[in-house]
Structures are given as structure tokens and as C-alpha cells.
Design a protein around this nucleic acid. Structure first.
Length: 128
DNA sequence: CCCTTGACTATCT
DNA sequence: GAGATAGCCAAGG
């Protein structure tokens, strides 16, 4: 059923529907492969909403169905939650379970991952 | 309206 | 590489 979030943005710039935004974001996140991570900004761009990195976390918090939210990290590969917080611990645990290397609060890129293509590499595989 | 707050980022020092 | 800074943008007070 259609959620009735009437929340049309009151922004002076880009009018947008929260429901559509959420659907786009959730779809992208649900496709991140296990053992891989993607940045908030990359998710936003892949969903068609450049410059909306800050909105991604908000959207994930609204997700009704289980989503691999733990695969979304900052562009510098650090976790966005406060170290010591419950959600921080949860994210670390889930990533570790998938074999993702962690150094302090930062994901350790695989040797095959190159910094320049993080967007694509983090995504996992070319969108086909 | 104005101001503050974030699950953010790119770019300087 | 760690901080500081300036953009970013929707929500909520």
C-alpha cells in the first residue's frame, strides 16, 4: 500500500516527494552486495539525487523492511554512528560478519579496491 | 521566517 | 592523515 507521506518539500529549490526519494534510496541500498559498502553520497547519486547525502541516513531510518543499512558508510570509509553507541556496535558486528575488515571506526578497503573508483568498487559490480 | 541539527562531503591547512 | 571550514539540504522548533 502506498504510504501517504504528503511531505512535499518546502525547499525553494528542488521540490521532491519523500516517498519517491525513499523508494529510490531503499532500492539502491538493497542492491549493495554483501561484504561491500557504499557511501551515503554514492547512494544518493545512484538513486538520482545528487547532493542529498545527508538525506540518505534519514531515509534509512524510515525503512519499513529490513535493509542492509550497515553497508552504508561515510565517503572516507568511517562509520557514521558515534563510536560506543549501540548502532555503531551493531553496524560493526554486521560488517564483521560479512568479512569486511575494520580498523578502529573505519572500513579497510580490499587490496583490489582502488581509491579512485570507490564509487564503483564499493557498489560491488557494474550495474547491469 | 530564522536558526539549529544531522546516519554528509570536498577541499584546504 | 587529522582538523578546520564551507557547502549541502530537509526537518523541526
Amino acid at each position: 500500500m502506498r504510504r501517504k507521506v504528503a511531505a512535499v518539500s518546502r525547499s525553494r529549490r528542488t521540490p521532491y516527494l519523500q516517498a519517491e526519494f525513499d523508494d529510490a534510496i531503499w532500492k539502491v541500498v538493497s542492491r549493495i552486495r554483501p561484504g561491500r559498502v557504499m557511501s551515503y553520497g554514492a547512494v544518493a547519486r545512484a538513486a538520482g539525487y545528487p547532493r542529498h547525502a545527508r538525506m540518505v541516513g534519514r531515509s534509512l531510518g524510515r525503512a519499513p523492511t529490513p535493509l542492509p543499512w550497515h553497508r552504508v558508510v561515510r565517503s572516507d570509509l568511517t562509520l557514521a554512528f558515534a563510536p560506543g553507541s549501540e548502532r555503531y556496535a551493531e553496524q560493526r558486528r554486521r560488517l564483521a560478519d560479512e568479512g569486511v575488515g575494520l580498523e578502529a571506526d573505519r572500513v579497510v578497503p580490499t587490496e583490489s579496491d582502488s581509491i579512485e573508483d570507490l564509487d564503483r568498487l564499493l557498489w560491488g559490480s557494474p550495474v547491469s
